[in-house]
Amino acid sequence: MYALLLTLHSLFRWVVLAGLLLGLGRAYRGWLGRRAFTRLDNTVRHTVATLAHVQLMLGYGLYFASPLVQAFHLRDTEHAPTALFFGFQHVATMTVAIVVLTIGSALAKRRTTSEEQFRTMALWFTAALLLILLAIPWPFSPFASRPYFRF
């Protein structure tokens, strides 16, 4: 189960990032280009939030199945920064990022003008993307290094 969750979580992050970049592209193009907020824009907004929630659920499943997290003790993190990253920082930052994205999606849905919808979506999704990029264990990350794809 752990290996399956790890593979799905690793691969699905690219789906989430691609969707989020698509959503941001449409949001900034619509906001700065003063376009109308269409059904497609609304579908992209909703789909990006849904993809992020699926990834978060995969991550929570992985979190509770992970032997690294099961062995995690806060008092030992001074000597094991990777344990601190996966035991606390990654899950906390990603949870906050998805909350930010969800709030932005909900607020954009409720705005009355296209400009407000695009602006809200652009700003909140950008904040979520920055948090997500910070918390991904990139191969070059000083916090915890993992390959681009885990199989």
Rank of each mutant, 00 (worst) to 15 (best):
T93R: 00
L134A: 15
M94I: 10
T50W: 12
R34G: 04
R75A: 15
V48T: 14
W14G: 05
F85D: 06
S145V: 02
W138N: 02
D41N: 09
R26N: 02
Y2L: 15
A52V: 09
A108H: 03
L21P: 00
A122L: 11
F12K: 01
D41V: 11
F72P: 00
A52H: 11
F151Y: 14
G104E: 11
A92Y: 10
R146W: 11
G61W: 11
S114C: 13
A127M: 14
L131T: 08
V91R: 08
A71E: 05
T120C: 15
G104I: 13
H90N: 12
F64I: 14
P139I: 00
A49D: 09
L20D: 00
V16F: 07
A135D: 03
V16L: 11
T112I: 10
T93H: 00
L8I: 13
F125S: 07
R29W: 07
T102P: 12
Y28L: 11
L101W: 01
R119M: 13
T120P: 10
P81A: 08
H90V: 07
F64E: 05
T77G: 10
V99P: 02
M94P: 02
P81R: 07
T50N: 03
M1P: 05
F86C: 02
L58I: 02
F125C: 01
R110C: 01
F149K: 04
G23S: 07
L40H: 06
A27S: 14
L134G: 08
A92K: 01
S145L: 04
R45I: 06
F37I: 12
P137L: 12
H53R: 03
L84A: 11
L8G: 08
L6P: 03
A52L: 11
L130H: 08
S114F: 14
Q55M: 11
T95W: 09
V16T: 08
L58Y: 02
G19K: 04
V44Y: 00
T43Y: 07
M57W: 14
D76H: 09
R39M: 09
R45D: 02
T93A: 06
L51G: 04
A108N: 05
H46E: 07
Y63Q: 03
G23H: 05
G59K: 12
H79V: 10
P81K: 08
T38D: 11
F64D: 04
T47I: 07
Q55T: 06
P67H: 04
G104Y: 12
T50S: 09
T38M: 06
F140E: 04
L11N: 06
Y28P: 00
A83H: 07
